[in-house]
Simulated scan of single mutants.
Amino acid sequence: MLYRLWNHAAKGTDPVAEFIEGSEAAGYDGAERGHIDMARARSGGLAGGLCAIYITSGHLDFGKPDERGNYETPLSKPLERQPSLDIALQMAAIALRIERAGGWNICRNSRDIAAAIEAGKFAAVLHMEGCEAIDAELSALETFYAAGLRSLGPVWSRNNIFGHGVPFAYPMSPDTGPGLTEAGKRLVGECNRLGIMIDLAHITEKGFWDAAKLSDQPLVVSHSNVHAITPVARNLTDRQLDAVRESKGLVGLNFAVGMLRPDGREDANTPISDMIRHIDHLVDRLGIEGVAIGSDFDGATVPAEIGDAAGLQKLVDGLRDAGYGDGDLAKICRDNWLRVLASAWHE
């Protein structure tokens, strides 16, 4: 979401007004309208979430599927740190401006989340997806922490000084390259010390196991799905899911259609039943306490039946029809996230 608001600000749009009043009011429609603003979040019952500082790689040339639907997208080139830092600071400033305008509350602990929900404010947890803005000495991490950063993914689907990302490819194992670098291992340790949740959504399988060995937090994969159903490199093997369960962590369902469909195709006409199929497998492997909603709003093509944040209750209704009771739904939609955040934040 912050990337979209930042990108539109470069075109002359007020990002604060766009979130509060809506992308449509700001003159955007279609794909540029994005998936989330204050009104659509309220309409879908979305009380809060991870709001990502994400630095784009520019035009990513996705591999074209062959006759069998197989494709492989080369990893994006690494980004330079200084421009990445500038952009990350601009996005953090947008987040702070939205808070000052009353559009959301930036939440630094569980009490902040509870207070935001009680006040009817969007509970924004500042997240960083790919740490190109952070230096190897981790000095900038302290600054972003002071600004409210409470969650980060060491890598996006590209390599950086902290580790290696997985490509967008089907079919492919997540074991695509090396794991954490020495700087990445220091980053994990410092996140453990500060209380910043570590997200393993885009990292290689080796990086996943490196973090599992080093981190004292529950293993969290904020937006990935089941490799046994959809064998894209971004999805998780059953062995990885077992490790998440053992750590009392969670996996958030990714709404990206190419990560939901068994054929891996980028087709918005993907039924909600495909989403439920992944959730069923996650529950079987992780237990109900290990499954959550991840979405990837503003970062992927989502099923047309969902559309955007306003359509979230359609997934809830589908889960209820599939036999999930109110207690199960409370865990999947809210309580499991609150538990792992509190654990990562030393509460």
Rank of each mutant, 00 (worst) to 15 (best):
G30I: 11
A304D: 14
C107P: 14
L312T: 11
V340I: 13
P15H: 02
D210S: 01
G323C: 14
L253Y: 07
E72C: 04
A243N: 02
D238M: 02
E137K: 13
P74S: 07
H127D: 14
K314N: 14
V232I: 10
N269S: 14
S173R: 10
L138E: 01
I20Y: 09
I306L: 15
I53E: 08
L187G: 11
A17N: 08
D242L: 02
L180T: 04
G148K: 07
D29A: 07
K206S: 05
V125M: 15
M91T: 02
C333R: 05
G195C: 09
L46H: 05
S173P: 07
T56K: 08
V166K: 11
A147V: 00
D321I: 12
D135T: 10
V188P: 10
A25D: 12
D210R: 00
I198Q: 01
K206D: 03
H35N: 06
L138C: 03
G179N: 06
P218R: 03
D216Q: 13
L85Q: 09
A292T: 14
G22A: 13
V226C: 13
A268N: 13
I87C: 01
L141I: 03
P171D: 07
A124C: 15
G153Q: 03
S273D: 15
E289G: 11
G69Y: 09
R4C: 07
R108H: 14
A268H: 13
G299K: 00
A133V: 10
E137D: 15
R339I: 08
G249D: 10
D308A: 12
A93F: 01
T176I: 01
D29T: 10
A211E: 00
G287L: 06
R81G: 02
S295F: 14
A342Q: 15
V16P: 11
A88W: 02
F162L: 11
Q217M: 14
D263H: 08
S247T: 12
N235C: 06
F255Q: 00
V244F: 08
G69C: 08
S173D: 15
I196T: 06
L282C: 08
D317W: 05
P171A: 09
A147P: 01
G58K: 04
Q217N: 03
I134K: 03
P178V: 00
H346V: 10
V232L: 01
A256G: 12
V340P: 08
R150G: 10
A140P: 00
S343C: 14
G48M: 11
L312W: 13
Y54W: 12
V244M: 09
E21M: 13
I161A: 13
L219E: 03
L187W: 09
